[in-house]
Design a protein around this nucleic acid. Sequence first.
DNA 1: GCGTAAATCG
DNA 2: CGATTTACGC
Lengths: 265, 265
Amino acid sequence: MTLRLTTWNINSVRLRIDQVARYVSESGTDVLLLQEIKCTDDQFPVRAFEDMGLPHLKIGGQKGWHGVAIASRLPLEEAPNLGLCREGHARCVSATVKGVEIQNFYIPAGGDLPDRALNPKFDHKMDFYERLTAHIERRDPDARLLLAGDFNIAPGEFDVWNHRYMLKIVSHTPVEIETLTRLQQAGRFSDVIRDAFPDPEKLASWWSYRAQDFRKSNRGLRLDHIWTSPGLTPAVVPGSARIHEPVRAWERPSDHAPVSVDLDV
Amino acid sequence: MTLRLTTWNINSVRLRIDQVARYVSESGTDVLLLQEIKCTDDQFPVRAFEDMGLPHLKIGGQKGWHGVAIASRLPLEEAPNLGLCREGHARCVSATVKGVEIQNFYIPAGGDLPDRALNPKFDHKMDFYERLTAHIERRDPDARLLLAGDFNIAPGEFDVWNHRYMLKIVSHTPVEIETLTRLQQAGRFSDVIRDAFPDPEKLASWWSYRAQDFRKSNRGLRLDHIWTSPGLTPAVVPGSARIHEPVRAWERPSDHAPVSVDLDV
DNA sequence: GCGTAAATCG
DNA sequence: CGATTTACGC
């Protein structure tokens, strides 16, 4: 069977529950990974997810900020929670579906100054990546593993609107790109979106709220990723990867667009 | 001609501008006195008032809190602003329509403790009433004068849901009732709502947001008043006074209902 | 409960 | 810009 999987930084799941339902219906998503749900487990709109056909839930919520969740049409089995956040934020949630281990992350943004000594938020971001890389180094590369979420790094020259300018801005600094590359190499992960739309095609999944018209200002970044392990990559359905940019133009949207892929499992 | 006049504590005129338009249209109001507009003069939705046929405006706004306004179908002439608020809040606005001087007040609520020495908010409320009474004592009783607004006092036994209980609660304490009575006697004002619905009929114009169902809990207070001077009282159209309680049951309502009367001017 | 505000974050 | 938080008033 084919599993359609989406990752989406929703920026408040309660505020945008109708958009989630619309997206799930229009896209035919079977497994939805959410970041920035901004609510506790208690406050999560369980009924709405049942109504949209994704009744199987793993919720990693907390009060107000951050928060991640997995909602699925198929039953979810357990997977190890990696607990990578040293600040205790709800930034990791995991589940196993059809033998595929899914790790959903909301990786810290890292503040403005790209200096670990001067900016604790940047240090926290790097620390999160280092812990994740250390974990991946200990794992069986043949396992069917998927990492996805808001990674808050746009790695490639064509993942940012202006490479030279962005090299000094957190999300595209050389040290971040090296850190992300180290993680990717540690697990020999495939970046399913970039593989489907090779360089030099410009791609983005996030556009700031600050622009009047996000398409006109055209300053997007590709921060949201779906990565597959060598054991899982053969299951990726060729030509199925998508960034759902039109969703960013809906009324009162999240600043992130959903990103999806189909897996033959 | 007959002038239909309404006073309404709107609790944010911007948030409830559609309800204002609906009320004005359904009630046929010609002169609308608003309290708690919660915006500056700049932020006041002038166009919406033009569209609802009340283009003549006197706005006493301020940032965020309080704020009063008069909106009229007929042109407004000047009237003295009484400037009764020692704290500089926007709580008084006035205008003259068809020779009737209208004074619209949002009188301080007064906090929880009914003690002038211990509670500066209560002192402020009493001070406001004393200044207003002192002003009225200096005035010609034959003038056509109307006082209206949110007075934040429910004077009579049948203006509260439980007289004995409420005697200890700010809005119905003996010292407040005496203070209000002193003002009323100073100007020999008629209370047009109570005159139209004499004791022992229970009346209310405000119900707390805290109750689930304001009608079921039935703990209303009559805080909103329209008073006419001896020179104006003969103009009150008999049987025209109304408390528009159904408005309190609209979607996301103000906690106050509109109160209206017709004047033959 | 339901409005404001200011500060914080992204 | 737009989502939180806390504090406050009624």
